[in-house]
Write a protein that binds this DNA or RNA. Sequence first.
DNA 1: GCACGATTTGTAAGCGCTTACATTCCGAAA
DNA 2: TTTCGGAATGTAAGCGCTTACAAATCGTGC
Lengths: 342, 342
Amino acid sequence: MNNQGRTAGLPTLEDVARQAGVSTATVSRCLNNPAQVTEATRARVMEAVEKLRYTPNFGARALAARRTNTYGAVIPTMENAIFARGVQAFQDALASIDSTLLVASSNYEASVEESQIRNLVARGADGLLLIGADRDPAIYDFLAERGIPVVLAWAIGNQPGVSFVGFDNEAASRKLAEKALKLGHRRIAYISAQSIHNDRARARVEGVRAAMKAAGLDPQSLRLVETHYSIKRGKAAFHTLMEGEDRPTLVMCGNDVLAVGAVMAAREMGIDVPGDVSVTGFDDIEIATVVSPPITTVHVPHRKMGNLAAQALLRQTLEGKPPETICLETEIAERASLGPVG
Amino acid sequence: MNNQGRTAGLPTLEDVARQAGVSTATVSRCLNNPAQVTEATRARVMEAVEKLRYTPNFGARALAARRTNTYGAVIPTMENAIFARGVQAFQDALASIDSTLLVASSNYEASVEESQIRNLVARGADGLLLIGADRDPAIYDFLAERGIPVVLAWAIGNQPGVSFVGFDNEAASRKLAEKALKLGHRRIAYISAQSIHNDRARARVEGVRAAMKAAGLDPQSLRLVETHYSIKRGKAAFHTLMEGEDRPTLVMCGNDVLAVGAVMAAREMGIDVPGDVSVTGFDDIEIATVVSPPITTVHVPHRKMGNLAAQALLRQTLEGKPPETICLETEIAERASLGPVG
DNA sequence: GCACGATTTGTAAGCGCTTACATTCCGAAA
DNA sequence: TTTCGGAATGTAAGCGCTTACAAATCGTGC
């Protein structure tokens, strides 16, 4: 458009070189590999850089170096805090080596995620952070073909060629369910995210079923509601569950956001938590402690996961190391929303 | 590093041109200005693009076109939802014209913000979204020198050469204070963010003082605590305020996160809200409705603000229009945390 | 004081794309 | 049929940087 004037007149490497009386190669080295340059010349070059207020041109640099120092992340949503902490940690780790993170969100839609991935690749992402493993194999081919390292977080899986930094969703969920079963709960309902294209959501449900089975219950008796992740949907789902006969005594939720919705709905309906119904969450985000009663949930070490994911990705990208799998431990954050069956 | 193999073998414009039997210029036009190309050739080119799975190289494109279609935003924090909705709307608006947003956070620190701004500029941001107006003038010079359009959001000010898309923090805060004064509150405290480098925080306090003055109270009698924005800090601040003699009957907070902290602290201390003390927030984010009692707060039209900010920025960047100022209306979200003085 | 290897610096060839300008093509008017 | 003008396409010159390779410079041991 009208950008003739935009960059016009901005100093270039060549300007700096001329000003400092050296070649462009030397200036470039000063900026990227200071060790290769004499103290004296470096000082002279830096002075010129300062004087001209030079800033390297990103596009040119990316083109010439065939690396952008930019990484991409596609997360399902930014609108609640589920991924915020982990992504923040991921970003911090990248920032410490002067790389930047491009974040995009898919709204839990596979097609949107795919186009976001393509977009990030087109923008030269040196590596990608994605959530979960459950997507079209063609995407992995696409990424592999372009040699782009990928780390999948929030889950563990067996996709070849990519790193995993996550935790065992099924085991974590099972552990929580076992605890609830010990408290005497038998009529159990589960409010889950849409399980299509969401391996984490499925694994969490499976964990509960496994615990039920181990306790001698029929896993098929689990009342399952699938919905989108939001407080509003959580409320609605809880309503649905409580309307019928044979109310559950325990409503487990696929994440804390849904659980918050459930607890709020209970309050509106005059149902006591955990007196009449217990509620559990998953994730342990701040909001779980804000609602009353605070929610018993699975604590996921988000920060640590984000940090380790960055490390793993950088090992692949910068050092050419092979993909790896890191499985983190989760624990149960015991709070007030889960109690003995009333 | 070991990136020889990275992009090696990836199809380039030239490959596509050869495959389609046209020149690189034609391929480029197909991709950027389809109208300039015959239906027939376009089809042929697109077929070649598909076949080769061609993706344009971002760096090369940026270098040649002198435009990146990338915008930058520096927000104080990602860790709570204060800016999430607005930034998401901003991003959506950009995405609809195939531009991307780079988001960085400054943790409310001026020096971090500055380096983030420089970083985004170095990465070729075509325009910038920043929060509030209160920063070193040298930054505005730097940006102006490089001809980078800027829109400041969440506030209104008079910085020349930049757009504003925000609301009147002082007026909004005053309106809320007036409402509280009508309910009989006289002993008032305010939990604010650090006001240094934060024009919004200062304006909100000033609004309360103005209302007090108008009601015949001494504005200096406002008990002010400054702290960082977090639930924890909000709790601590509330504790401090309630420890002394002469407890306030109203604790106004600089944002909802602090207010949530205050309400939670009250519950822990056995202080009834709003029976013993009223609490107010600012922003109207989801968490304000989750805590009990839900928080009376200033509703800020975040989504709208983000969307309009994008529009304004694009008008400057793409159409070369001059900066503009858009002031949005806020309203009070009346909920249960504000009541008559007990 | 000299030869030699190590270190520092310079030269110049692209990286893959956009776009001004030149050329070719085509249909309509004469 | 010829001519002309506009639309479609091609040619090629960079955009600003990195880096392989070549050249120059330096310090060292003899």
